[in-house]
Design a protein around this nucleic acid. Sequence first.
RNA 1: GCGGAAGUAGCUCAGUUGGUUAGAGCGCUGGAUUGUGGCUCCGGAGGCCGUGGGUUCAAGUCCCAUCUUUCGCCCCA
Length: 436
Amino acid sequence: MALPTQPYKGARDFYPEDKRLQKYMFGLMRRVAESFGYEEYDAPVLEPLELYLAKTGEEIVNEQTYTFEDRGGRKVAIRPEMTPTVSRMVAAQRQELAYPLRWYSIPNLWRYERPQRGRLREHWQLNVDIFGVDTVQAEAEVIQVAAGILKAAGATSDMYSIRINSRKLMDFVLKDYLGLDGVQRHTIAKLIDRMHKMAHETFVAEADAVFTPSQRDAGASDKLLELLKCTAIEQLPAEVRSDKSALELMELMNTMKEARLSNAIFDPTVMRGFDYYTGIVFEIFDEDPENNRSMLGGGRYDGLVGLFGVEPVPTVGFGFGDVTFENFLRGHGLMPPMRPETDVYAVLIGDVFAKAQPVIAEMREQGVNVAVDVSGRAPDKQIKTAVKKGIHYAIFIGERDLAIEQFEIKNLLTGVAERHSIARIVSIVRDYRSDD
RNA sequence: GCGGAAGUAGCUCAGUUGGUUAGAGCGCUGGAUUGUGGCUCCGGAGGCCGUGGGUUCAAGUCCCAUCUUUCGCCCCA
């Protein structure tokens, strides 16, 4: 029986062309994050299971985390997210670090669930976090990092929307404004999270079923619906609008405006699944009608670092997955032209492999990436290979060329061939490469 | 974890109410052609018809299970 060639369920192989796209996406992420002063860190793929028990959502730990017991009887998890890990790292050096601390990482993460569009079992996720800032200036900054990556990818503001809400505000709404108890709040919160996926009548009916008769008489249902319709803080009822959390949101929205992020809106239906969020939460939505989904999300989690027994550190961060990013790029026609790493394909004519070495070495020393065809096949076959690999230049090396130290360099995309010295060829290829 | 759809060559697919030795296009590969790719001509390789079981004289085709992919639900880093 033959071994299967397909990768593990929900995981991907990265062939060179796939890896090229990944390098492009990660490159954008790194460049933009570093332009804001973020420093890259990393950590093990394995963590003790306890790390996730405290604050990650229950279902994620119990059903969506890969776990096993090691030979020493320790319960181990393959990291399903990076936030607990980075909190652990910050807590470990709580006193030594320089705040505000700006860190980013692009870890691969695993979740055990059924793969579907935009969600696999293994994915890579940019994590951007700022530690030690308790004002909404932190939120404003990380949102700008997120938007900056999309902008660097060539996205325009109509392609996505930045939707902002606040856990504190929703707590105030559900507890003080609507007077719900703990269980009711939890149920309604989950319901709001699903709101856009269900028929409006279903939502109304399910929400109504949560309220007690006296709450219903007090118009809880209508109050909730009215509130969820708001798309700006100013539209909130006066009682809600004067809460501290609303003022905070207003300040953030104002900064968004100053930062020219015109597609940032207040959206009370943005809840986020994790239990550890404590304040502002936000998502960036892909506005592609074929792919209308949250592609990036984050928020404030001031309580996590403190779980490790040190003084708490206020924190804001977001995660941005490679799968949703790739869908976004494809959906909006933002896929970049992929250029192979190899600049020049050396076509050898006749048995000149040994004699050609100095010429090839010279090109490489000058920074040109050269792949040599060592197949001994006819020149036309060698060219076909170069074309198939997508290499842009071929250099022809035969006895004649070596004798006069002039070589033909052919642009395989245009078919144009010229004859030059190696020095000249090197400069032509370098100029061409730095074109874009 | 729950429900729908689909698996035939590397890719896209055809294959009649079950009936000889399973096909096409593209791709791959060799030659025409060891000093120049895309066009043309000639040749070649490549399939346990996803896997296992069942029904039948006979299964790519019908039934069951299973795996994988995909769409949705749950959930959502």
